[in-house]
Design a protein around this nucleic acid. Structure first.
Lengths: 174, 174
DNA sequence: ATCTATTTGCTAATCTATTAGCAATGCCAC
DNA sequence: GTGGCATTGCTAATAGATTAGCAAATAGAT
């Protein structure tokens, strides 16, 4: 396939994404530190703040935290009095996680600071740019399927096309 | 300060960036696993593959790996026979890190696979989209300065404007 | 020449990611 | 019902991230 290049001609895109994320996080981290919670804990607080309760596998999906990590994170958060965990009656495997009143109060204090930070960032990079960037990232996620390491042979692009069509994706970043 | 919102109106942009990065990495991870190296190790191999040697602080900067992590990563890579470390004569603090021939050979085997994966991804999301996304992320990095937690008061935007002007940044994502 | 301040790489402690695997529960076909 | 099968949450081991801090070496000012 195309003369086997021995040098890399592409930027390290995952690295650029990492750097962009770190740059952004540097603006939010002081707020998290001031409240004594970690990034992952805040992601969980943030999604639980919108709903009365969620199950661990839902939080795993919403916060992009792996299941093995989630076990430890939730245990520590319970230890800190941020969440409660209780079994679901009709299915003893399952679990429901909720914010404690204390965590909910903390989130209410933090939300305005987080929002203010987003506004300050939009002021620096431009609101339009900011919105289009999010849109572009959403499009990437819609067009590029998760790689399934089990089906190594026989590249199947139908999944990508489905995702693209389903999401109503615009041509490009535009 | 616009009336202290108690709900979040912005998408979690760092989370979206994380998800995009993970989605991309899922396509590269099999290559790394097949060669028995981690993401961070590959980032280091990749930059050292282009140059004869680098110093740890340069690698830290290029690979976005924190200095405390770098110590352990380089120690493990030396243990695995991937890199060599030797002191600089005229400055006993400093260090020069190089790839071993074995690591260089491994990189030469991996580069074509990495390149092929980039091409496959570009095929799925569109080459133009891919290039514009990188461009947009570069613009974000140019416009948004690292937050300096030391200067809390007196927001100074001059740094952002300088960076924007210096980089020859286009209006928006476009 | 000496004293101070910075640079460089490192250790320590805690938390999270990744990979593999496992016990318990529930589902479902038979 | 019962035996296969998937789901749910978990543990264990290793690697990295984050925060704080530290010793040695160097550069700069006096």
């Amino acid at each position: 396939m195309a003369s086997k290049p021995t040098r890399l001609h592409h930027r390290n895109l995952p690295l650029v994404l990492l750097q962009a994320r770190e740059r952004l996080l540097s603006h939010f981290r002081p707020i998290l530190n001031a409240n004594g919670i970690t990034e992952q804990q805040w992601r969980i607080v943030r999604v639980l703040y919108e709903k009365p309760s969620l199950e661990p596998r839902e939080i795993v999906e919403l916060c992009r935290i792996s299941s093995p990590s989630m076990a430890g994170v939730l245990a520590r958060m319970q230890e800190l009095g941020l969440v409660t965990r209780r079994r679901v009656d009709h299915d003893q495997r399952r679990l429901r996680v909720s914010l404690t009143p204390r965590a909910r109060a903390m989130a209410a204090r933090m939300v305005p600071q987080i929002e203010a930070t987003y506004l300050r960032i939009e002021q620096q990079v431009g609101e339009v740019f900011s919105e289009r960037l999010v849109q572009a990232l959403d499009q990437l996620l819609a067009m590029l399927p998760e790689y399934d390491s089990r089906k190594a042979a026989g590249a199947d692009l139908s999944q990508a096309k489905e995702a693209g069509a389903a999401g109503g994706v615009i041509d490009v970043v535009q």
